[in-house]
């Protein structure tokens, strides 16, 4: 039995197989409509989430399975003080596979150690969010043909953004990837990503604090939200915030085939005027998240 805790749990070959399957699901959804008939997905969400939980539920329903679960700690027995280890033992009797989101880092791993069913980490605090990374990789591969020889700009909160860290970790396994890290000084990628991941593997990267200066170089722009509360003082926030807002004017500086991704939700970092630009792929990305989760459920349930 296999679980998914980190995007690195899969080898590159396994990831390719997973994405091949997601591709086939995307192209022939009818062939998969009953694959999970009689199977149940438990969505154990100890903190609120809209997209991830609904994306999992949509994936299972599209496979002909059913779903059960809870969407906040208050509505689960965690409110009575039940441990994650006990909860998963119970859930193992009710469902065939579990997607778990928890505010405490490592909680899904603890669950997987006691579980009798596959556990998928659907986000654990600021630690990992592997299905978002799988979504990002699948979107890039689907829209670009392959993940190779790309200049990828990561913009916004690179310090606290777990999706950015996971994505960098996953992308360094592909050839010819260049990183342009666009953020204010205060929100640069943590030292361990810079030293242990990028420099250790001899990766080509640069750190800049203006989006305009690098727009023309990018094949992919991965936007994240810059949160006001991350700044030490409001002055810095006001001075810097507009540098990281994507507007139609900035899109004029970009390549014709550049694509914009965002893990969502967005607040104001991408102007709504950009949504109609054919290069804005973040809603497509969310749609592709369902296909890759379908492929993941099938793989972990060993139904392929």
């Amino acid at each position: 039995m296999r679980h998914l805790m980190s995007p690195l749990d899969f080898t590159r070959e396994e990831l390719e197989q997973l994405m091949d399957l997601a591709d086939d699901i995307k192209n022939h959804p009818d062939n998969y409509a009953d694959k999970c008939h009689g199977k149940k997905l438990a969505t154990c969400f100890y903190e609120p989430s809209t997209r991830t939980r609904l994306s999992f539920e949509s994936a299972m329903l599209s496979l002909g399975g059913s779903v059960l679960g809870f969407s906040s700690a208050d509505s689960s027995s965690a409110a009575k003080g039940e441990s994650v280890s006990d909860t998963i033992r119970i859930i193992s009797s009710y469902a065939d596979i579990c997607a778990m989101r928890h505010p405490k880092e490592g909680a899904p791993l603890v669950a997987s150690q006691r579980s009798l069913i596959p556990v998928i980490n659907a986000g654990d605090g600021g630690h990992q969010h592997p299905t978002q990374t799988l979504t990002d990789l699948f979107t890039i591969r689907s829209l670009r043909g392959e993940i190779k020889d790309l200049t990828i700009g990561l913009c916004g909160d690179l310090k606290f953004g777990r999706t950015v860290h996971s994505l960098i970790n996953a992308l360094v396994r592909y050839p010819g990837i260049k990183f342009v890290l666009i953020s204010p000084e205060e929100l640069r990628v943590p030292e361990y990503i810079r030293e242990d991941v990028l420099e250790k593997n001899g990766y080509d990267y640069k750190e800049v604090d203006s989006l305009d200066d690098v727009m023309g170089e990018l094949d992919i722009l991965y936007m994240t939200r810059v949160q006001k509360e991350r700044f030490f003082n409001e002055e810095d926030y006001i001075r810097l915030k507009d540098f990281f807002i994507l507007t139609p004017e900035k899109m004029h500086l970009a390549k014709k085939d550049m694509m914009v991704l965002h893990p969502l939700p967005r607040v104001n970092e991408i102007s709504v005027d950009v949504d109609d630009d054919p290069r804005a792929m973040y809603f497509t990305q969310a749609k592709y998240g369902v296909f890759i989760r379908m492929a993941l459920i099938l793989t972990l349930l060993e139904l392929v």
């Binding site: 441990s83 280890s85 405490k104 603890v110």
Partner: peptide
């Protein structure tokens, strides 16, 4: 020492 770690709250871990 990470206050966000599950090991700070899960019993018997």
């Amino acid at each position: 020492k990470n206050p966000r770690c599950i090991s700070t709250v899960e019993q018997e871990l």
